[in-house]
Computed example of a mutant assay.
Amino acid sequence: MADPAPHPPFTAEHDAIRAGMREFITAELRPHADAWEEAKYFPDELFGTVGAAGYFGLKFEPDWGGSAPSFGEGTLRAALWALELARCGSAGVAAGLGAHSEIAAPPIWKFGTDEQKRRWLEPAIRGDLRCALGITEPGAGSDVAGMRTRAERVDGGWLVNGEKTFITNGVRFDAMVTALRTGEGDRHAGISFLVIEKGDGVQTSALEKLGWHASDTGTVALQDVFVPEDHLLGAENQGFALIMANFQWERLQMSLGAVGGMEAVLEQTIEFARTRQIGGKPMVAQQAIRHKLAEAEITLNASRAMTFDTLGRFAAGQDVLREVTMAKLQTQRAAVDVADVCLQLHGGYGTLEEDGPGLARALRDARLGPIGGGTDEIMAEILGRTL
Rank of each mutant, 00 (worst) to 15 (best):
residue 6 P to L: 13
residue 26 T to Y: 00
residue 28 E to H: 05
residue 29 L to T: 02
residue 29 L to K: 00
residue 42 F to T: 06
residue 54 G to V: 08
residue 55 Y to S: 09
residue 57 G to K: 11
residue 64 W to V: 15
residue 65 G to F: 06
residue 70 S to M: 05
residue 78 A to P: 14
residue 88 C to V: 06
residue 89 G to R: 06
residue 92 G to Y: 05
residue 104 A to V: 05
residue 105 A to R: 11
residue 120 W to L: 09
residue 123 P to R: 03
residue 132 A to L: 07
residue 138 P to I: 14
residue 141 G to Q: 11
residue 144 V to I: 14
residue 145 A to R: 04
residue 148 R to T: 13
residue 148 R to W: 05
residue 151 A to F: 03
residue 157 G to A: 05
residue 166 F to I: 09
residue 173 F to C: 12
residue 186 D to H: 14
residue 187 R to W: 09
residue 187 R to I: 02
residue 195 V to Y: 02
residue 200 D to G: 08
residue 201 G to C: 07
residue 209 K to R: 13
residue 212 W to E: 07
residue 215 S to A: 15
residue 222 L to C: 03
residue 222 L to M: 11
residue 240 F to E: 06
residue 241 A to N: 10
residue 252 L to M: 15
residue 253 Q to L: 10
residue 255 S to R: 03
residue 275 T to F: 01
residue 279 G to D: 12
residue 282 P to N: 04
residue 288 A to K: 13
residue 288 A to C: 09
residue 295 E to V: 13
residue 299 T to Y: 00
residue 303 S to R: 02
residue 304 R to S: 15
residue 314 F to W: 15
residue 315 A to K: 08
residue 320 V to L: 10
residue 323 E to R: 10
residue 326 M to W: 13
residue 333 R to S: 11
residue 342 C to D: 04
residue 344 Q to M: 02
residue 366 A to M: 15
residue 370 P to I: 03
residue 380 A to D: 14
